[in-house]
Design a protein around this nucleic acid. Structure first.
Length: 287
DNA sequence: TACCAGGTGACAG
DNA sequence: CTGTCACCTGGT
């Protein structure tokens, strides 16, 4: 189907933003996304402007910015509405969020926003996000991808020639050695414990959806191997709590160098998580 | 070879 | 409550 987005939507920037690890660029500008039991191929087929508002008859259309992105998706409209619309966060207006940042007030953030324009915060599956960010500890992005891929291959269901992320039960069925062979190192014991607690129902990630931001963070941090960084990333990228501002070493460097160590969160609530993504993206594209 | 990387738990002070 | 340290593994 055809998807039209009159708002920020840059596949490459999202794929490189560090929030997701199962977006693969299969050809120039064409991505395969594996998420929540679904596999999607998506490709941008052109950016048109206001004058060409025509061909929405069969597809879906979001946003109202003059700058328009058109995508071709491998899924049906039903599958899109049942899953991908929410996953891609298409009902959030990122143009509006970006416009909160004034050049005169914060030129550094303003510049990062221009660089990162097109990023969206996905709504990823809870279990997958939690496990992936436990794995991410002291790993760089390629290493995280490789490790997650091995885990999917070891325990996930095969679909359309690729492996879905394991369910809690599938993952809990793995032995310690099987998990360790995915390159998880000292994190193996964290993964074992968390997967088993969720699999038995002793811990319910779904039930945590009802908690306030602070309570959610506290509950996530109770899990073995989950500290403030992993908990914040899970809250932002899976529970879609848009005000969380995960501080990893990269962001800490930005804060030290440009904000005297503290980001002015009061200015951008409840969208601090989006600002964090812009700052993060600006940092990785500096190199 | 030695060191470091997109953290965390355990433990000291 | 703040500081230090080990920890798997893959990369220079």
């Amino acid at each position: 189907m055809i998807l039209t987005v009159r708002d920020d939507f840059d596949l490459k920037k999202i794929a490189e933003s560090g929030q997701c690890f199962r977006w693969t660029e299969e050809a120039e500008g064409a991505y395969r996304i594996i998420a929540g039991g679904h596999v999607l191929k998506i490709r941008e087929i052109g950016q048109v402007d206001e004058r060409n508002r025509d061909q929405d008859a069969e597809g879906m259309c979001y946003g109202h910015d003059p700058e328009t992105h058109v995508f071709e998706l491998s899924c049906s409209k039903d599958e899109f509405l049942g899953f991908w619309e929410e996953y891609l966060d298409l009902k959030t207006d990122y143009t509006k969020i970006r416009n909160m940042v004034k050049k005169s007030e914060d030129s550094y953030l303003y510049n990062a926003v221009q660089l990162g324009k097109g990023i969206r915060i996905l709504r990823q599956e809870l279990f997958e996000t939690l496990i992936t960010f436990i794995i991410s500890q002291r790993k760089n992005i390629p290493a995280i991808r490789a490790s997650v891929e091995k885990l999917c291959k070891a325990a996930g269901t095969k679909k359309d020639g690729c492996y879905l992320f394991p369910t809690p039960a599938q993952m809990a069925a793995l032995s310690e050695d099987e998990i360790a062979s995915c390159g998880t190192g000292y994190r193996t014991k964290y993964l074992m414990k968390v997967a088993r607690e969720i699999s038995t129902g002793e811990v319910s990630l779904d039930a945590m959806s009802d908690l306030s931001d602070n309570d959610l963070l506290a509950e996530l941090k109770k899990l073995y191997g989950v500290g403030v960084k992993v908990a914040s990333c899970t809250a932002l990228f899976a529970y879609h709590r848009m005000d969380f501002f995960p501080e990893d070493v990269w962001i800490k460097r930005v804060l030290e160098n440009h904000y005297a160590g503290r980001f002015p969160k009061e200015k951008y609530a409840p969208w601090n998580g989006v600002m964090q993504q812009y700052l993060f993206f600006g940092q990785i594209s500096e190199k």
